[in-house]
Structures are given as C-alpha cells and as structure tokens.
C-alpha cells in the first residue's frame, strides 16, 4: 500500500495555490488534512498527478463570530473546533457533531473543509452544515462565490466545487435565543462512520410551539438529506408522539439507503426513523430549556 507518484507543491499564499490549481487543471488535487485522501492514495484508488498542499496557508485557519455568523477557515483542524469554547457556546450542534468524527488523532489533522469537500454520505460535518443552514465560500482565480449547503452536495463524494477552486470558509448562521439542537448517530463502533446520523435544530416560542425546525439525515442517501416535510408538519405545533410518527413517516418516504455488509437498506431506514424521533425530542427538550 504505497501511493503512486505525484508532483508536490506547497503554496505560501492562497493566490499561489489558485494559480497552481489553474495550471494543473484536472490533474491537480488539494491536500488538506489528508485523512481521507491519503488512505485512498495508499490503496491506489486515487492517483492525482499533482498535489497542492494547502497546509501552509495559515490564513485559512480561524474560528470567528462575526455578525452572529460563525466563520471557520477551511484549514481549521477538526480538533481546534472541538476544543473551541466559543463554538461550544454558540453552536452546540457543531461541537457535538465534531466529537463523533473518527478519532482524536484523525481530528488533530483532519480539516473542516476537507471533510465537507470529501462529502461522504454519512460524514458528520456535511450533515451538521446542512442542518444548520450553513454555506461555504468557494474561491477561484476569477471569483469568490458562496454556495448554500443545500446546493453544495451533488451526489456520493461529489460536490459543486470545481478542480480549480478552493473551499475557503464555512459559515453558519447562529442560533436564536430559544433554540435547541441534537446530533445523534448509530455507528458500529466508536469513531466509525455512522450507519445513520440525524441532526436537528429547532426554535420554540414561550408556549412551546415550534417556530422553526430543520431536520436532516446522513447515511440514507448519496448526500445528506434535508427532510423538508418536518418544517411543514411541526411548525406552529407542540411536539407530540403523533407528530413524531408523522415526521418519521416522511423520513421513510424520502430515504432510499443502500444495503451493505453492516446495515441493510431496511435497517438503515428504520434507524433513520428512530433517530428522527430521538433528535426531535432532544432538540425540543433543549429548546424549551
């Protein structure tokens, strides 16, 4: 298991990185934390001709709270987000999701942007980003564009990003006062990719009526799946068993998971329903305080 040959560049600035990407075209590949890319290179499932290492771009590593928007530079290590008190205070869902990615040692190196661009269907960060209605900032030589998470994921391991572009920043609008969240997953072992993951973010008024809710699932489709029906079913209501059942039914309708060794399609669908109820319940309880 040794990687194939490639050329290696380590740009000192974003501009330089973008120039290199432009030059390399389809042959170029960014390496960030390498926690997904290097294993598949070692297995020779990927053989990029030209690796552009963005680990020198310190300016892409930051966590900021600006105008009630959480901004995280793409190169920020997952463990930096995990250890950030600010993130824990203002964005509990993200903080909870992060701890479930792999292991301490992979989080020490793996980056926020890398996970989102890698776009594994059961990965935690893409799911968290979608649930939190976040977006990504994408930079190329010609432009800087912002793409909402809802539009970013296209299919299995594929996103809206072009080979000449760099994901530079992740932005997440922050929670309102009376809001609650939950992130839960079922995995075979601690630290494994989820069989199914579910995340929910919800706001509730003083009477306990739900004013807004976003529910999304990982592992049930080629991309993280936003359950739009949840909003329709739950808005203006207090959470109840019958409503939970209704949402679970929508989830069943909308998911079409694959079968593999570790979980059949039916089991994944079932887990999606179970987790839906669990995250909605927990988020509701947290929102009510």
């Amino acid at each position: 298991m040794k990687p194939p040959k490639f050329e290696y560049y380590k740009p000192a600035t974003l501009e330089e990185a973008l120039n290199l990407l432009e030059e390399a075209g389809d042959d170029g590949k960014i390496i960030a934390g390498g926690q997904s890319l290097v294993p598949i290179m070692n297995m020779r499932l990927a053989s990029p001709k030209c690796l552009i290492d963005i680990n020198g771009l310190e300016e892409l590593s930051y966590i900021k709270n600006e105008d009630n928007t959480l901004k995280i530079g793409t190169l920020t290590r997952q463990s930096d987000v995990e250890q950030s008190e600010m993130v824990a205070n203002v964005c509990g869902l993200l903080a909870e999701a992060i701890t479930q990615i792999g292991h301490v040692q992979t989080r020490n190196r793996g980056t926020i942007g890398g996970s989102i661009v890698h776009a594994d269907p059961s990965a935690e960060l893409p799911l968290a980003l979608l649930t939190l209605n976040g977006s990504v900032q994408i930079t190329s030589k010609d432009e800087v564009r912002t793409v909402a998470a809802e539009d970013f994921f296209i299919t299995y391991l594929t996103t809206d990003i072009m080979p000449t572009e760099v994901l530079t920043e992740v932005t997440i609008p922050l929670m309102e006062e009376k809001s609650g969240y939950s992130f839960q997953e079922i995995a075979r072992r601690h630290g494994d990719f989820a069989l199914v993951a579910a995340a929910c973010h919800m706001t509730v008024d003083d009477e306990g009526l739900i004013t807004a809710v976003r529910l999304a699932l990982g592992g049930v489709e080629a991309i993280p799946l936003l359950i739009g029906d949840a909003e329709d079913i739950l808005t203006g209501e207090q959470l109840s068993d019958s409503l939970l059942a209704q949402v679970a039914e929508s989830v069943e309708m909308e998911s079409d998971p694959e079968s593999d060794l570790h979980a059949s399609s039916e089991y994944r669908t079932h887990l999606a329903k179970v987790l839906t109820k669990r995250v909605l319940t927990q988020a509701y309880e947290r929102a009510r305080g």
Binding site: M1, Y8, V38, P39, N42, M43, R109
Partner: peptide, 27 residues
C-alpha cells in the same frame, strides 16, 4: 495498516499526535 485506522504509526508533529502513515515526509 497504512490507512489511518490502527494507530500504530502515531507520532507527534509539532506537539500533536497524528498518523505518520497519512502524511508525506515532504509535508
């Protein structure tokens, strides 16, 4: 394992524990 799972290759780089099988020496 050379794919990041077993942890046998873990070292400290700039004071942080990481997998040495998932980094290139040049990095």
């Amino acid at each position: 394992c050379e794919h990041g799972v077993c942890g046998a290759c873990t070292i400290n780089v700039n004071g942080t524990a990481v997998r040495s099988c998932l980094m290139f020496a040049i990095q």
